[in-house]
Structures are given as structure tokens and as C-alpha cells.
Design a protein around this nucleic acid. Structure first.
Lengths: 344, 344
DNA sequence: ATGAAAGCGCTAACAC
DNA sequence: GTGTTAGCGCTTTCAT
């Protein structure tokens, strides 16, 4: 517990009979410092166990080299892949990550925003909560011109860049695929269409139906929070319908897997009676039997790109004109939707 | 981009014709401030859009209200549950979390330690990398008496608290269970026994064998990094053995699931020919068929407890005498190990 | 190539 | 109950 005194640049300055200014410059490779004094400074710093005090530096420079992250929830495979990607890029560029969860609530999101503002993060990476209607609560950041980048659950705003996949197209593709497999009454289990990801997938679903001459039926749309339990409940309601659907498109894999399990328990044959598709390419999708048809959604890549985009903005100060960056997605067809004799 | 000037307590002081000190006190409910001036201060602060500058505060108080977290990898369900738990507790207590990944490398771990030290985190929550032989590289923190708490992959040290489950007992229980199901040649797939979690489970496995009169056979122990791919490879090697084992205990669920899939492809009946058990109670375990017997490992709870323990230490300054906190675990018996007629 | 000095915004010991 | 004042450790202009 030897709370020894902190070593500061003043201590090094004294030991080397130089000024603090020179030490400060030497430590960050300032061009006007002679090579040998630079070396002396580094050696002494190491010898004395000097560690920079970032508060002082940040206070002085009004810059934190810290990036704030707000996500709805941390406990999913997808989100941890995203964070892993962000951490990798941020760390390599000398940035720290401060992470917080909105737990899907706008109030908590606002609280997080304030905390991160107080921590003077240099920028923000955000995936929005279910119930955030708009992004007025980000004004603190927007008014100050602090970069704000959305990923996955995004919001269109002239000042912000969004990183997404083309959820409309993905929803269209997955629905068309189910139709090509012979499904005509396709249920869709999804979440709040306040969020682009769900609204877009739903649009894709509707247009795919229309383009194949299938009437849209509101009763086939089930809204829930996409948890395992919600998936089971939605499926239960589906099973109680007068006329059973012959296909189900769930907006994430957790729900789709829960759905398959419930259907199997009810003795329904998949994909013969009902085709099922999910979304995300969660590890679960390769394990459930039958294997789940799903949309590959590159979480790690999305995290890396979000962080890289933000850092580029911070380092170059140039307001990149890019407003939306779209990542590739791809349909992974597996047994849960593949009927004999149909093409994929 | 209106980079308006920051509002400081001086601005509020001027507007209210008070001193900065009074504002500072008022803002943090100092007891000696009159209720009505306190209210005036709050109102004015809100009106002017004041936001505390944490750098200045932290610099002055030499305290950051920030907790550093170092984990091997972020992209697993278990780890994201742990982090979710930490974030919840930390946030409620007014702490931020800075998170970094060691990617299982001691060098990266050291780099993370230095960065977090520079950020002057108040304490550290750590799960060790595979290849950290000791914790000398934490000296920076230990020498300064900054609290260091290990969870999951821990290291015994008089200054540090560890949060774990009883891996020895868990390994013993799971192995005994397989034996009771009639397995006599049980393979064990695990990772570096430099880490307590794997060493302890292996000890439990050995002792369970011994207590049931089964000879320990080194050839049945497979070391790998417990990834999906490594699980498949290890299983491949198992399948090539002259005498096939009749039980497999894998040190995590990812590997166990990969193992089951590989065995099934080879036409092996589970649990009839080989019983299989995993570890962690990952969502995967409930989805694989047959459902996987596994050890429930409370990730979220472990994260909450780790954070709460650290924060208690920070807030009370009392060096809690607790050196190890052991969380409950429980065996979840599912089909992958349950043979007809055997008791669990 | 180096030094002197001011100040980033806040807190807390001390004064009244 | 409120004010004065001195720094926390660093960066950076300006001077030499």
C-alpha cells in the first residue's frame, strides 16, 4: 500500500536540469528537441517510472482520446462482436472506449449521454434504444459539433454518419427466398418499427410479397422485444391462428430459434409445413436443427468501421461528406427453409 | 458546428454574484450551503447549460470514478454477460467503465495495463490471458495500492480479491455425473492449465476418476484454445483413437457443441455411445441436439459482484479481508449425458 | 534548441 | 454560510 508520490515531468526536469517544457516536448517527439536530449528524457522517465497524467493533459488540450459507446444491451453475441471490433480499432489508434447500456430506454440513454459528455469524450458511437423517437436528447453533442456516429439502429441526421446494412434489401431477399420455397402465408416477427432496422426489414417483406402477388396481411405481423421468451410467445399465438402460416421470418436469430423449438414441440415439420428464417447469423443458427436460414450481419466489421470512421473524423477534422455507409450482407440458406425441389 | 464556449462554474458564479467555491459546493450538495442558494445555483446551471468538466475535477481530486476492465476476449456470450453486469453496477454507483481486450496475450495485457494506469482508473477488474504466467506486469497497480480484482481467470495474490466459482468441485461433479451415467473412459478437452479455471477443472476430473477407481490416462486430455474449430479438431483426434472414449467433458460449451456436431457427423450416438458435457451454460447448450449437459456459470452475477466488490473497496477505503469470493454453480443435466435407467 | 509563465476548470483548506 | 486562494500536471505561446 505504499502510496508513493506520483512522478511528474517536474521531477524529471529537476533530475535532468531541464525545464518541464522540454520534458513535455521530448516525451512526445516534438521536432525541435535534440535527439540526444530526447533520449536522456526517455531514459530518465523510464528509470523514474514516469506515467503521464491524462487528466492534466486532457484538461489542457480539451481533448480526451476517449470514445463513448452507447448500446441498447451488451449481452448478445452480435453486440459483443461489435464492441470487440471497436475496441480493436480504437486501441490501435490510441483511443479508449467508455461503454454504457441504454437497456432500451430513452431516459437511460439520456443519462448516458450526459455522463459521456461530462467525461468529454471526443465522439460517440451509438445504436439507439427501442423507444427513442428522435435524437433531440443528443443535442448536447450535436450543438457542440462533437461527432456522432450511429450504427445498426440508426437515425437520419445531416450531421451524423450511419453504418448499416441494407435492411430493406435484406428483408426483401429473405422474404423472396421463402416465397420461392413455396411459402405464401409468411408471418413476420419483429420489434418496434421506430427503429430503422425493423421498419426497413418490414418494408422489404411487404414489397417482396407485393412483387410476388401476395396480399399483405396485418394479422401476420407480430411485434415483440425479440427475446427468447417473446419468440416462444409469438409462436404460441401463431399456433393458435385459424389458418396456420406456411413461413416465418423472424427479425433476429434468438427469436427464430425459439420459434423453431416451439414449432417442433407442437409437432410441426420444418421446413415442410413451415419454413423459418432468422436474422444475424448468430452462432445459434448453425446449431439448431434444422439449421437456420439467416442473414449474415458482420458485427465485428461494423464495429471496426464505426470506430475507424469516427477516428478519421477526429484526426482529420474534416467533416467527411459520407452520410451513410452500407455494409454487405448475404443470405445464408440452410435447412430451415430449404424445401426439396425448390431453388434457393 | 457552433463551438460555443464551455460554461464553467466561474460563469455561474458571475451570473449569480457568488464565488466559484460556493457554486462548486452547491452543485454537490455540500451541507453548509443554504437551501435556497443551492436551488438558485441549480436553476442557473441548468439555464446556462452547464456541464461539469470531469478532467478538472479528477485532476484536482486525483480520482477518476472510472474502472478499468481487461478481459481476454469480448466476443462470447459469457463475457458480454459479465460486462453487462459490471456496467449495471458501476453506472448505478456513478462509475464509468473503460474496457480493453488482451486477446489472450501477455504483451497486450501489459499495454492495456499501462493505458489504464495513465487514465488513472480507480481500480481494475481483470480476467487473465491464457499465457500470463504471473502478475508481475500488474506491479504498476499493486505498488500504488490501487485495488485489483480478478474474476473467472484469477491469480492468487495477497493484495487481490478473486471472484470465482469452485471450478475444482464443478469439474468433480461433472465428471462424477458422467461416470454415474456409465462412462469409464472420459476424454477431457481443455485449455492452458496456467489458468486456474482449467487447472482446477482438470484436478476435479482427476479426483473424480480416482474416487471411482478409474485410472487417469494422459492420452485422454486434449489441450486447445476452446474455439469452435479447435473443438472439431480435438474431436477428430478423438475419433482416430484406437479405443474410443465413452464420455467427453469439454471445458466450455462452444467446444462441447462443436464436439457433438463432429461426433454426430461421424455417426456416433449421443449419449448412448459417448456422453458429452460442456461448461458455461451458453445459450447454445439448450439448442444443440441432444441438449447439452453443462455447468451453469453466472456471468452477469459475476460481473455485478466484481464491480460491487471493487466499488465497496474504493468507497470505504477499507481493505476488505475477503480474498476469494466463490459463486454458486450448478450442474444442468440434459440429454447429451443422460442414459436410460441411470440416475443423474 | 530550450525556458518562463500562464492557464485549462475544479476543489478544499483556511479565513471570515 | 460564503469567499480567497493555491494548486492538481500538463501544454503552449512567446521569448531568448
Amino acid at each position: 500500500m505504499s502510496t508513493q508520490k506520483e512522478i511528474t515531468i517536474y521531477d524529471i526536469a529537476e533530475a535532468l536540469d531541464l525545464s518541464p517544457a522540454t520534458i513535455s516536448r521530448g516525451l512526445k517527439d516534438h521536432p525541435t528537441i535534440r535527439k540526444d536530449t530526447r533520449k536522456r528524457i526517455f531514459d530518465k522517465a523510464k528509470e523514474m517510472g514516469y506515467q503521464q497524467n491524462l487528466f492534466a493533459s486532457n484538461l489542457r488540450r480539451s481533448r480526451s482520446n476517449t470514445i463513448g459507446v452507447i448500446v441498447p444491451r451488451l449481452n448478445s453475441y452480435f453486440m459483443s462482436a461489435v464492441i470487440a471490433g471497436m475496441e480493436k480499432v480504437a486501441n490501435a489508434a490510441g483511443y479508449n472506449l467508455i461503454i454504457s447500456q441504454s437497456t432500451e430506454s430513452k431516459e437511460k440513454e439520456l443519462a448516458n449521454i450526459k455522463t459521456l459528455y461530462n467525461s468529454r469524450v471526443d465522439g460517440l458511437l451509438v445504436s439507439l434504444a427501442y423507444d427513442s423517437e428522435n435524437i433531440d436528447h443528443f443535442d448536447l453533442f450535436l450543438n457542440k459539433g462533437i461527432p456522432l456516429i450511429f450504427f445498426d439502429r440508426v437515425f437520419d441526421h445531416p450531421q451524423c454518419t450511419s453504418i448499416v446494412i441494407d435492411n430493406y434489401k435484406a428483408g426483401y431477399e429473405i422474404t423472396s427466398h421463402l416465397i420461392r420455397q413455396g411459402s405464401k402465408r409468411i408471418a413476420h416477427i419483429t420489434a418496434s418499427i421506430k427503429r430503422n432496422v425493423y421498419a426497413d426489414r418490414l418494408r422489404g417483406y411487404r414489397d417482396a410479397l407485393a412483387d410476388h402477388g401476395i396480399l399483405y396481411d396485418e394479422k401476420l405481423i407480430f411485434f415483440c422485444n425479440l427475446s427468447e421468451q417473446a419468440g416462444a410467445e409469438a409462436t404460441q399465438r401463431i399456433l393458435e391462428m385459424d389458418e396456420l402460416p406456411d413461413g416465418i421470418f423472424a427479425a433476429n436469430d434468438t427469436t427464430a430459434v425459439s420459434c423453431i423449438r416451439t414449432l417442433k414441440q407442437a409437432g410441426i415439420k420444418i421446413p415442410e409445413q413451415i419454413t423459418v428464417a432468422g436474422f444475424n447469423n448468430d452462432p445459434l443458427s448453425k446449431v439448431i436443427e434444422p439449421n437456420l436460414t439467416t442473414m449474415n450481419y458482420p458485427g465485428q466489421e461494423m464495429g471496426e468501421l464505426a470506430a475507424a470512421t469516427l477516428i478519421r473524423k477526429l484526426d482529420t477534422k474534416e467533416g467527411t461528406s459520407l452520410n451513410t455507409i452500407v455494409l454487405h450482407h448475404n443470405l445464408i440458406v440452410r435447412e430451415s427453409s430449404q424445401r426439396k425441389g425448390a431453388d434457393s
